[in-house]
Design a protein around this nucleic acid. Sequence first.
DNA 1: AGCCCATCCTGTCCGC
DNA 2: TGCGGACAGGATGGGC
Length: 239
Amino acid sequence: MDKRILDLQNRKVLKIERRGKAILIYLSGNKILGFHQRMTGKLLIVPRDFRDKHIRLRFRLSSGKDLIFHDVRKFGVRWYGSSEKVLKDKYLSKLGKDPLKINFKKFQELLQERHGMIKPLLLRQDVFAGIGNIVADESLWKARIHPRRKIASLKLSEVGNLFKALHYVLKKSIRLGGTTMRDWLRPDRSEGQYYKARLVYQRAGEKCQRCSAIIKRIKVASRGTFICETCQPEAGKPK
DNA sequence: AGCCCATCCTGTCCGC
DNA sequence: TGCGGACAGGATGGGC
């Protein structure tokens, strides 16, 4: 039996917090139980007799149900310890700004003095906490910005459009309960509805909702990336 | 600084 | 039906 798990006995959940893509459960006795779901992780509240080969952790709750961490690919991360120790973790302590919690001026500042491409920057959790591949592609499409555009080449109006697009996409995906494309489920095992609402991500070969051109799949930052080449022209490549 | 690749691991899908 | 390759909501470390 794992001592760290035993140590959870009788602890009370005081609050649950999200920091970027990390979920922190504050427990009595100054402890934090934290998770990062990565690619296929999910936190589920299930009946005690719920069984599945991919359950990695199981916590018995006083409600009579179990909290489980289910993770097919085992990339998920779990933290546990005193809140000081957990918050000092390399990943958690370096998390950047939540895009929904900053104003446009701050957003502009974070883009200053950057020399790379815009999409890889959006995906950096130490700069913007919480933006993932889907939100990045959907936002860049909405703002009509090619993911390989150099940050320094973006006009003020484009930076403004991107900021607005990020807010729009993040709020919408949260309102729709997240993205279920294959594995992921909400804690009550219902599906998130954002995947049905997406406009470019994983839609290669389909028509752009804005201009009817065919959506393409390219690679940016070693990640599958979906764009409309007409709406999101690449700098230096006039059509 | 920033880009790419491989890696961690399991499952699915597609072409042959 | 089998088999190999590509790809999948992410992060990290090494090489250039």
